[in-house]
Simulated scan of single mutants.
Amino acid sequence: MATIVCPACHEPARRIALRTVKALLTGAALRRLVPKDEFHFCASPDCDVVYFAPDQVFRVSDIRERVFQKDTASEAPVCYCFDWTRESLVAALHRGARPDEDIQEHVRLRRCACDLRNPQGACCLGNVRAVLADARQRS
């Protein structure tokens, strides 16, 4: 099976559910959507394409949420379900809290909606743990 790559940056992309794309597009972008295609998510931070299909491209400006992989600001969301930003994760870590364990417990209790809220259409725990690891390394 061939690897699907982003049409703009040519980085590998992963398939994403149409319901995630539809949930996160702005109204104007949703009006342009042709829902028959299979969509993919581009996680490359240097590319402004978020979702694409063979004849459709949706960019950062077409998305209702800030996209973690494409927004390096401290107030950018990392966990979309439980409102954790880079800044709040680092602050919690410095207070001795374990936000990753808190999020994991909510996931275990089936409270998350990552498939709809997170632009990558998947659980945020990997992103959360990467932010925390980076913060620990910088301390």
Score class of each variant (00 low, 15 high):
residue 1 M to P: 03
residue 1 M to D: 01
residue 2 A to Q: 08
residue 3 T to P: 00
residue 4 I to K: 10
residue 4 I to V: 15
residue 5 V to P: 04
residue 6 C to Y: 02
residue 7 P to A: 06
residue 9 C to K: 09
residue 10 H to M: 10
residue 10 H to F: 14
residue 11 E to V: 06
residue 12 P to T: 06
residue 13 A to D: 00
residue 15 R to F: 12
residue 15 R to T: 14
residue 17 A to E: 15
residue 17 A to T: 08
residue 21 V to G: 01
residue 22 K to T: 10
residue 24 L to R: 12
residue 25 L to W: 02
residue 25 L to N: 03
residue 26 T to D: 03
residue 27 G to C: 05
residue 28 A to V: 02
residue 29 A to I: 00
residue 29 A to R: 09
residue 30 L to N: 07
residue 30 L to Y: 11
residue 33 L to K: 05
residue 36 K to E: 15
residue 37 D to R: 15
residue 39 F to G: 08
residue 39 F to Q: 04
residue 41 F to H: 10
residue 42 C to N: 04
residue 44 S to T: 08
residue 44 S to R: 11
residue 44 S to L: 03
residue 46 D to A: 11
residue 47 C to W: 00
residue 48 D to Q: 01
residue 49 V to D: 01
residue 50 V to N: 03
residue 50 V to H: 03
residue 50 V to I: 05
residue 52 F to R: 07
residue 52 F to Q: 12
residue 52 F to S: 13
residue 52 F to K: 08
residue 53 A to T: 00
residue 54 P to D: 10
residue 54 P to T: 05
residue 57 V to E: 08
residue 58 F to Q: 04
residue 59 R to K: 09
residue 60 V to I: 11
residue 61 S to Y: 05
residue 62 D to L: 12
residue 62 D to T: 08
residue 62 D to I: 10
residue 63 I to A: 13
residue 64 R to W: 02
residue 66 R to P: 00
residue 66 R to G: 00
residue 67 V to T: 08
residue 68 F to W: 11
residue 69 Q to G: 02
residue 69 Q to L: 11
residue 69 Q to P: 00
residue 72 T to G: 13
residue 73 A to R: 03
residue 73 A to M: 07
residue 75 E to I: 08
residue 78 V to M: 06
residue 78 V to F: 05
residue 78 V to L: 09
residue 78 V to I: 13
residue 81 C to P: 02
residue 83 D to I: 00
residue 83 D to K: 14
residue 84 W to L: 07
residue 86 R to W: 03
residue 86 R to E: 02
residue 86 R to T: 07
residue 87 E to S: 14
residue 88 S to A: 10
residue 89 L to H: 08
residue 90 V to A: 09
residue 90 V to M: 06
residue 90 V to N: 07
residue 91 A to L: 04
residue 91 A to Y: 00
residue 91 A to V: 04
residue 92 A to L: 05
residue 92 A to D: 12
residue 93 L to Q: 04
residue 94 H to C: 10
residue 94 H to G: 08
residue 95 R to Q: 14
residue 96 G to Q: 04
residue 97 A to W: 00
residue 98 R to K: 13
residue 99 P to M: 12
residue 100 D to G: 15
residue 102 D to Q: 12
residue 102 D to M: 10
residue 105 E to W: 03
residue 106 H to F: 09
residue 108 R to W: 06
residue 109 L to Q: 13
residue 110 R to F: 04
residue 111 R to Q: 15
residue 111 R to L: 15
residue 111 R to S: 14
residue 112 C to P: 02
residue 112 C to G: 15
residue 112 C to M: 10
residue 113 A to E: 11
residue 115 D to Q: 15
residue 115 D to V: 13
residue 117 R to V: 06
residue 118 N to T: 11
residue 118 N to C: 08
residue 118 N to S: 04
residue 119 P to K: 13
residue 121 G to A: 11
residue 121 G to L: 07
residue 122 A to S: 14
residue 124 C to F: 07
residue 124 C to P: 02
residue 124 C to M: 12
residue 124 C to V: 14
residue 127 N to L: 06
residue 127 N to W: 07
residue 128 V to L: 06
residue 129 R to Y: 02
residue 131 V to E: 04
residue 131 V to G: 06
residue 132 L to I: 03
residue 132 L to D: 11
residue 132 L to W: 01
residue 133 A to P: 00
residue 134 D to V: 12
residue 134 D to Y: 04
residue 134 D to N: 13
residue 136 R to V: 15
residue 136 R to K: 14
residue 139 S to F: 12
